[in-house]
Every structure is written in structure tokens, then in C-alpha cells.
Design a protein around this nucleic acid. Structure first.
Lengths: 342, 342
DNA sequence: ATGAAAGCGCTAACAA
DNA sequence: TTGTTAGCGCTTTCAT
């Protein structure tokens, strides 16, 4: 068994309170400090955070529930958050719920039982029902990437609606009139936002929207492959496309590859996320890059603020919107006039 | 404050032992079961795993320390492990140590204080020193992907040495004689293994090794870009290259892109990891794919076995080696005879 | 089947 | 400054 404070007390002849005080920044006589440190060394003592957590009713642990760990966008954000939280003494328990609302519910129950001090969630449940139980605990919840339901909580978003609009406007300015969009699933906040951006651009530019140019799919590589193939097959007049997340973008590149279509000669393309992948494409893909580091920082700082501010110095819910940027590649050109084969 | 077992006891008029027994699968009179469940419902009771952990000296939590979360190979393995561990009632605390042995040490101390029941580690420290403190606790440790130092513990590996050898042999059989390798950092287990595979192939095929064809770099995209550019610049006679992890592979694709070299006309390439990326390349990249799902499963099962087997039914350390596969793409052809411009 | 009570390792009054 | 002590919420004997 691991050494306990009692062992240190016995070893040093001091009382428990002195040892505890030593660990919690209290004043301890120099002579005793030395004795305690020697005992710690010899016994390989490590504070038992479980016992401490029971006593203080704080586990110094944040739960993170996301749809998919194996997804650069999520992974980047988690890496960033974890870094900051750990610097402040907080651990993170990450639960990947595979985009399944039922698993998400289970993950949250699990975290509740583990008595995490707060929750950061990229919701898979579009209703917001899953958050009810956790938010009843009174512990802080920060949503990232997606807003959901009517549970009031802080929220860190990216302005992908604006970014999508500007990407589409840029395609229009390059001369494109029939622009396809490969969009995420219906009801998913980010998918709707990016579609709205697409619609905004058409409205601003005074171009009608043709619904046949809008295809939907899960946020998966395979859906991207199918989506772009469907658009190319059914809309030979299409000269450009916006693809609205990383998996879809990669799928789209695979699909165009398999069809033997050239970018941008046959089709101009603007993708999403993952700059490195965009650079690896030939020619380099123009993409909308999301500010993952900033989202991570905002989320971590927001929850830390909620965790430490005694009197709620920030009442009400906070919403922060971080800015995306359009990273130019070589995948956009003027429409060639030559239509691709269906 | 959250409800406790005491609240349930008060509500139902039962004793604490009965409630505890209810939660731990003991026999409870039907009538009381109903009462307890009603109270749980009304009070929104959730077991406090912190208190339970203190009492039972088990947190049902596994610590995972990896070099980089934002890395498909790691992310895939973690996703897989987490899935299995959660099914068995274990949470995972993932610590990304940014390939920094010092941060890795801190992460392990942190996990030790949190009293995780076991540790799964893809070591960043090449010495194995970091594991000493944790392994003294007597809790199980499972290493993945890399062997390290002389701390005796179970180990789940992939046979990337054999896979690298076969990839290089395949290039030789296609007619290549001057084959470059973009290799990971000196001292890193996987990097050395893959290099050994490259050397094995030369020995088996009776071809001398030219050290100028071996370049080293961190396992990063940028190192891949620089590595391939250096090889192309300094070794114009080179007709093929093996690139030995995902980041390096992506970097290599970017580098060749930027140089305007064609694959496989100017250079045959075999990459590593991430099948989706390989398909997205044009032409599709031939790669060595690692069995991430299998590694994840083996690691999770091994630690679960260590955690549950009372009498050590598996004494000594276990080493499992999982098989990689060579996934053919279109990035390998016979050498063209036409040398690329330096 | 159920209740009473001890104690896991720690913190935080309160006393000294 | 240091020691004593009472819990935090749970599990687990040991009685009943």
C-alpha cells in the first residue's frame, strides 16, 4: 500500500495537521519542513487525491464529452484545453461518444458519478436533453462548437456561417454561378450554420438557390465521397463546391480522385479544417480553417473562471464566437466553360 | 449538494447497509427495492465514486499517457481502448505530454496522485526512467507501440520492422536500387525498428546501404517536408522512398507537391499509417497500415486481465506483436530511368 | 435481509 | 506553529 499522511506523521513525530498544512501552503517550521520532506522522499509519498476530493468536494477534474476523438478538429481542441487545464491543476476525463446521443447520456452519468467539477461538451444530442441531469448538479457546463436545446450555459463557437458565406461569395466573384455544397446532417448546429452561410451568399449576391446543389451527409469521409460523386453525376453544370468539414473534405478529394476529375480545371473546391491536409493536396486546397487553439483556450478559460469565481462575477451565459479564416490554395479558378463529363 | 446514501436511508427508513447492498448486487426485499428506487428517482441520487474509491482503494480509472493526442495513430488507439475500458466500467484519463519526457513525468505523478488503477503508456522517455515511480506502486502498466528501458511490463507492439522490410523489398522487386528512407528520431524505438527493416531488406537482397539515403527527423509534418526535399536535392539517383510514419508521410506528400515532382513517375513512394489519407492522395499512396484497432484491443484486454486476475495467472511480462499490412496504391512503379531534376 | 458502527486518507475547525 | 478531532460518503464486518 502507498504511504499516507499518517505514516509521515509517525515518521516525523508530527501531527496530521502539520503535514496537511505543509501540503496546503501553510506555515511549517523550517526544521519540520526538512523532516517532512525527508519522510516524503523515503516513503515515496504521493497525496491521495481521492481522499482529498472526498473531503473538499472537488475532484480537480473536468469531464469532456465529444462526438469523436479520432477527428482532428476535436483532437486539436482537446489537446489545447487539456494543456491549459492541467497547468491549472485540473485533469480531464475525455469521453468519446461516437456521435451517439445514447452513449453521450451514459458518458455524462458516468462523469456525474465521478464527481467531475465541470463539463465541457461538444454535443451530439441535438435536443439538449442530455445536459439536463448534469446541469442540475449546479456545476459549470461549457458547450463548444455547437449550441443546443435550451439549457442555459456558456458557449464557445466559431463563426462558420460568416466564413461559409464569404467562401461562397469568393467563388461567385471568381465567376461561378452553380455552386454545390456538401453539407453535414440535418439538425446538427454546425451543419445548419454553414448551410445558412451558403444561402446568405446567394441572397447577398442575388443568385437563386437551387436545392439540387445541396447534398447532405454525416460528417464522415464516406459521406464526402458519396456526396461529391452525387453532385458531379447529377449536376454537370456545377462548376464549384463548398465542402463543410474535414471528413467531408477528405472524402470529396478521394471522390474526385476516383472520378479522375481535376481541381480546379473541372471543379473549383473550397474545403474545411486541417491546413496540413490542404497543403498535401495537389493543387493545395483552399480551405476555411477554424481557430481550434482559440476555441480551446476560450473554453478552458471560461470553465476555469466559472470554477474559481466565488461570487458569480459573470452572471448569465457567455457566448464567445471565434473567427475562422479562409486560407487560399490553388483549388479555385474561374469556371472553365468546359463542363465535366457526367 | 448532491443526495447521499444517507438521504436515501432517511427517506426509506432503511439502514445504510441495505442501500449499499442494493447498489452492489446484494439481496434486498422486493418491497424495499421499490422504495429505494423511488427515493433514487426523487432525489436524483448518483453514487459518489470518489467516496467509493476511497473505501475500496480502486478508482476504476486507467491513466493513459501518450506523446500527442492530435495524431491519428494515437487517437485511433485511444478511441479503441476507451471504448473497451468503458464497457468494463473503467474511465480513462488521457494525458498528452507533447513528446516531452519532463511533461510525461509530471503526467505520471499526476495520475499516481489520482490513484488510477493502471497505466497505459506510449513512452516519450526513451530511458524508461519515468515509469519507475508508477511501477513501484505495484499497479499494472502496459506499454504500447514502443518498448523502453528495463522496467518489466507488458507490451503491445506492431511489427513495423517486418513491414518496413517487406515494403523495401517490394520496391527492390519493382526494380529500384537507390531507395531513400525518411526516418524518425534517433533512439525512438519505432524509428529504429523501421530503419532496421530497411537495412534487413538491403541485406536480404544483397544490396549495399548508402547512408546518404537515410534521413532523420522528428515525427512531424515539417520534418517530412524537409526530409524528402533533402533527399531529392542531394540524391538525384534516388528512385523510391519509404516514409515511416503518418506525419512524415503527409509532410513528404506536401514536399513533393511543392517541388512539383510526380508520384510515381519521378519517385515511387511508400508511406505509413492512415489509409484515408492514402486514398486521398493522387495517385493513391501505397502504405503500411498499422493495426490500431488490434493494438487498442490487446492493450485494453491486457490491462483488464492484470486488473482482475487475483492470482497472477499470467506471470512474467507479456509481449504481443500485431501485424501491419501493406495496402497497395498507385504510388509504386518501375524506376523511369529518367531522373528527376535536382 | 437488515442495522450499527468502524474506518478508508484527507481537511479544517478548534485548542493548545 | 502544532496537535486533536470530527467528519466527507461510502463499503464492510459483525450482530441481529
Amino acid at each position: 500500500m502507498a504511504a499516507t499522511m499518517k505514516d509521515i506523521a509517525a515518521r516525523t513525530g508530527l501531527g496530521l495537521a502539520t503535514i496537511s498544512s505543509y501540503f496546503n501552503g501553510g506555515n511549517v517550521r523550517e526544521k519540520n519542513r526538512v523532516k517532512i520532506e525527508a519522510a516524503i522522499e523515503e516513503l515515496h509519498y504521493e497525496v491521495n487525491e481521492v481522499a482529498r476530493g472526498l473531503k473538499t468536494n472537488e475532484t480537480k477534474t473536468i469531464g469532456v464529452v465529444i462526438p469523436e476523438l479520432n477527428n482532428t478538429f476535436c483532437a486539436e481542441i482537446i489537446t489545447g484545453m487539456e494543456d491549459i487545464l492541467r497547468m491549472h491543476g485540473y485533469a480531464t476525463i475525455v469521453c468519446d461518444c461516437r456521435t451517439d446521443p445514447q452513449l453521450e447520456k451514459e458518458a455524462m452519468d458516468f462523469l456525474l458519478k465521478k464527481r467531475v467539477d465541470g463539463l465541457i461538451n461538444m454535443p451530439s444530442d441535438t435536443q439538449g436533453k442530455n445536459l439536463a441531469a448534469f446541469s442540475r448538479s449546479g456545476k459549470p457546463v461549457v458547450l463548444i462548437d455547437r449550441r443546443t436545446g435550451d439549457i442555459p450555459c456558456d458557449c464557445i463557437l466559431a463563426d462558420t456561417r460568416r466564413a461559409s458565406k464569404e467562401a461562397v461569395l469568393q467563388l461567385m466573384q471568381a465567376g461561378h454561378r452553380r455552386i454545390g455544397i456538401v453539407c453535414g446532417p440535418q439538425g446538427v448546429f454546425t451543419a445548419e450554420e454553414r448551410l445558412k452561410g451558403y444561402l446568405d451568399a446567394h441572397r447577398d449576391y442575388g443568385l437563386p438557390v437551387d436545392e439540387r446543389l445541396v447534398v447532405r451527409g454525416d460528417y464522415t469521409i464516406e459521406a464526402g465521397v458519396q456526396g461529391i460523386k452525387q453532385l458531379v453525376r447529377e449536376e454537370p453544370q456545377m462548376t464549384a463546391a463548398l465542402v463543410t468539414n474535414y471528413e467531408l473534405t477528405m472524402g470529396c478529394v478521394i471522390g474526385l480522385n476516383e472520378l479522375g476529375l481535376r481541381v480546379p480545371e473541372d471543379l473549383s473546391v473550397i474545403g474545411f479544417d486541417n491546413l496540413a491536409f490542404a497543403r498535401a493536396c495537389s493543387p493545395a486546397l483552399t480551405i476555411i480553417a477554424q481557430p481550434t487553439a482559440e476555441i480551446a483556450r476560450e473554453a478552458a478559460e471560461t470553465i476555469l473562471m466559472r470554477l474559481t469565481s466565488k461570487s458569480d462575477e459573470q452572471p448569465g451565459q457567455i457566448t464567445r464566437t471565434c473567427s475562422c479564416s479562409l486560407i487560399p490554395g490553388r483549388s479555385v479558378s474561374a469556371p472553365s466553360g468546359v463542363k465535366h463529363e457526367p
